[in-house]
Design a binder for these strands. Structure first.
Length: 488
DNA sequence: TGTTTGATTGTTGTT
DNA sequence: AACAACAATCAAACA
């Protein structure tokens, strides 16, 4: 009885911690421990206090005991200890974080040995954490920079003790790219492309659009400046005289030179990168874009600029929308971002607009969305593990055929990169319910909702396949993140 | 050498 | 002097 009471107190405390910001701090600390391989058993022990269930029946029993105790309190809602500043959805996302903790510890492996991929995983916690924070930016937007710095310094301190230098290594860059949710970035690129495609004035034509007559307007502007005496002509007569260069002027009326494929790629990608990681510097973004560019493949490199430029010349964007998107799907990462339902909807002839809408609902500005955060957009792991297991080009070869080339239905066993990552994570044993025993602990999850995103048959519609109900939050949204973090 | 973006800095003009 | 507006520069990587 007393023990049960103590457990209840511990559980309440854990939930209180979970609801408070300390949840994050503990998570970071736990992650650090897991990463560093320090005190794994301590972490397991703490897991009970942090309210996470790592599959250990005893720990589960602890939390269950708490739940049982809290049954008196409407057993699931726990409103009294919910801070007023936290919205209700965040409360429901507690399961995600708990699962994250759990997955972290499992990522370390029960025997204390680091999995084969843990080396890479150790190299990218900063951005990954920032990504995870970005996913919860609606909660932590104010703390994000500080936390990023904290984690980064922490990681730097840890890395400094290891022989391998983190920076300056292409592999590390690649892993960084993966950690930075490459697929999300590429997906956002795709979305942007999709939006651009449908937009009447594609970026390629933006320069030509405002300037029907460039030369005359230029002269007019010159005259205008001469007449009005504005300061533009006075551009640095005595200014520094440093690099006369070419004044650059950047006349908007001047027809832009055809920008390189890489420039276009950079322009599209950097926005997504910045969106994901606002604190990323230009150098970081440039490196990431470069690594992504390297992983693109020749045809994709050429298709990338061709898309935007052909868009400008294509008279019928809607009709041309579908084919140009396919290379994007072949890109490594985007396919991993798409859920099976998305892919199937795409293959089954769903309207590109709906697909773009679906994508947009998932990846665009996740933190700003008031709707439930996009659970399936957990692209952290898929590219990572694909990169771990395969060279980037091989990944593209692996991912692209089912989507962009072969119309034949995919084998149900390995329909998506999500399944791939699950298999990679669960290496020896096939993925099954027994691998996620804690899922069975969720009362409303078992029957009504298919666990995980790998249910192409459910529906292609995002609204129906995701979270309308409680199960979508407690399990469907939990499982993907759990899996992805499981792999990190 | 030019291109990408965004922040910063420097210069000039106005109040 | 203070402020506003604009231009130039810088970062990394690629064509």
């Amino acid at each position: 009885m007393q023990q049960t009471r103590a457990e209840a107190v511990a559980g309440a405390f854990s939930h209180c911690l979970g609801f408070c910001g300390m949840r994050l701090g503990l998570f970071l600390l736990a992650r650090h421990w897991c990463i560093a391989g320090v005190f794994p058993q301590k972490l397991d022990g703490d897991s009970a206090y942090v309210g996470m269930s790592d599959g250990n029946p005893e720990l589960l029993s602890t939390s269950q005991t708490y739940n049982g105790q809290s049954e008196n309190n409407e057993d699931y809602e726990i409103p009294p200890i919910t801070p007023p500043n936290l919205p209700e959805p965040s409360l429901l996302h507690l399961g995600d974080h708990e699962a994250s903790y759990h997955s972290l510890c499992h990522g370390l492996a029960p025997n204390g040995l680091l999995p084969a991929y843990s080396y890479q995983a150790m190299d990218l916690p900063a951005i990954m954490v920032s990504n995870m924070l970005a996913q919860d930016s609606h909660l932590l937007s104010g703390q994000l920079p500080t936390i990023q710095e904290m984690v980064h310094s922490e990681v730097a301190a840890y890395d400094s003790g290891r022989p391998g230098a983190l920076l300056g290594r292409p592999a590390m860059l690649a892993s960084h790219m993966s950690a930075l949710s490459q697929s999300q970035l590429i997906s956002q690129m795709g979305i942007r492309s999709g939006i651009t495609h449908s937009s009447p004035s594609p970026p390629g034509s933006k320069s030509a659009t405002p300037s029907p007559s460039s030369s005359t307007q230029e002269e007019e502007s010159e005259v205008h400046f001469k007449i009005s005496g504005e300061k533009r002509p006075s551009a640095d007569p005595g200014k520094k005289a440093k690099n006369p260069k070419k004044k650059k002027k950047k006349d908007p009326n001047e027809p832009q030179k055809p920008v390189s494929a890489y420039a276009l790629f950079f322009r599209d990608t950097q926005a997504a990168i910045k969106g994901q990681n606002p604190s990323a510097t230009f150098g970081d973004v440039s490196k990431i874009v470069a690594s992504m560019w390297d992983s693109l493949g020749e045809e994709q490199k050429q298709s990338s600029p061709d898309q935007s430029e052909t868009k400008s010349s294509q008279p019928n964007p809607p009709a041309k929308m579908l084919p140009p998107k396919q290379p994007m799907y072949a890109m490594p990462g985007l396919a991993s971002f798409l859920t099976p339902s998305d892919l199937q909807a795409f293959r089954s002839g769903a309207s590109p607009a709906s697909l773009a809408r679906t994508l947009g609902s998932k990846s665009l500005l996740p933190g700003l969305s008031a709707s439930p955060p996009p659970p399936p957009s957990f692209p952290l792991s898929p590219p990572l593990h694909q990169q771990l297991s395969l060279p980037p080009h091989a990944q593209g070869a692996l991912l692209s055929p089912p989507v962009s080339m072969s119309p034949a239905p995919q084998p149900p066993v390995l329909p998506t990169p999500m399944a791939l990552q699950v298999q990679l994570a669960m290496s020896p044993s096939p993925p099954g319910p027994q691998d996620f025993p804690h899922l069975s602990e969720f009362p409303s999850s078992s029957g009504s909702c298919s666990p995980g995103p790998s249910n192409p048959t459910s529906s292609g519609d995002w609204d129906s396949s995701y979270p309308s109900g409680e199960c979508g939050i407690s399990t469907c949204s939990l499982l993907p993140r759990d899996k992805s973090l499981y792999l990190t």
